[in-house]
Amino acid sequence: MDLERNHKWKACDYDSHIELVSTVNGEGQEGTQSSYGFVSYFGEAVRRMKANDKRACITREVRKELGLEFKNLPPAEKSKYVSQQHRVDKVAHDEAKFLTRCAPDRFEVVVGQLTDKQREVVCEMGLDNLIKLNCGRLKRKLCCWLVERTDVARCVIELNGSELQISANSFRYIMGVTDGGLPLLLEGDRSHVAAYLEKYNVTSSGINIKTLADILQNSREANEEFKVTFMLFTLCTVLSAPTDQLVSGIT
């Protein structure tokens, strides 16, 4: 079909059309599994049309005609577009699995509301450089790219044929936090932290991150309770972020 000869295009901005087109069969209706590669075919056809006429406007009739064309393609040629769609779906699926609640922007908002005394206490805790953090939201694609190139067993990141060794010292240097110091007690009597469990409204699943943020934003004290709350919030938003809204392993 010679679309350039058979159709007169109206002037319009077409760029927004591609993202609105779903799988379509020859009747212009939502397609079945056999025609889901139409999205790739449609995009290629439209790019070709627009190269010939930048003012080309894709109407319902044009989409229908393209749908019929795709439906009548030989199986071997149609499979090419189906394979392309498989690759797109796989990339989207892989990206969706990269989940983290690491949120430097949320951390920055809370830090911005700390009093001078609270900042002094945070510095005493060895987090003085961390409260200067100002990087906004994480770039998920970049994080995923780095994770894919990290060999956890050997503690190295493979970059362009070279290997970058990573260690606790690397983390300390980059994040600006003290490495070592006070011992951590990971076990103990639940009654010793009963007041905190009640204050944080702890459930069997853990502590909600928003609860910690709200407590910090409404606090003007720089006492032991503030230290515990700030440390938990720092862990779950920057240092060791979970994949959901809850800080687990507390109870």
Rank of each mutant, 00 (worst) to 15 (best):
M1H: 05
M1E: 11
R5S: 14
N6K: 12
N6L: 15
K8Y: 10
W9K: 04
Y14A: 07
S16V: 14
I18S: 05
S22C: 02
Q29R: 13
E30H: 08
G31R: 04
G31H: 03
T32G: 14
F42N: 01
E44D: 12
V46M: 15
R47H: 11
R47F: 13
D53R: 10
C57K: 05
T59E: 01
T59V: 08
K64V: 09
G67R: 02
P75S: 07
K78V: 09
S79Y: 13
S79F: 14
S79E: 15
S83N: 13
R87L: 12
D89L: 13
D105P: 00
E108D: 05
Q118Y: 02
G126L: 09
R137M: 10
R137C: 07
C143N: 03
V147K: 01
V152Q: 01
V152S: 02
R154Q: 04
C155F: 12
I157G: 06
E158S: 05
L164N: 08
L164E: 07
I166V: 14
Y173A: 15
Y173E: 14
V177T: 08
T178W: 10
P183T: 06
L185W: 06
L185R: 07
D189A: 10
K199G: 03
N201D: 09
K210T: 06
D214F: 06
A222L: 08
A222C: 08
F226P: 02
K227E: 11
L235P: 02
L239N: 01
S240M: 15
Q245H: 12
S248H: 07
I250T: 07
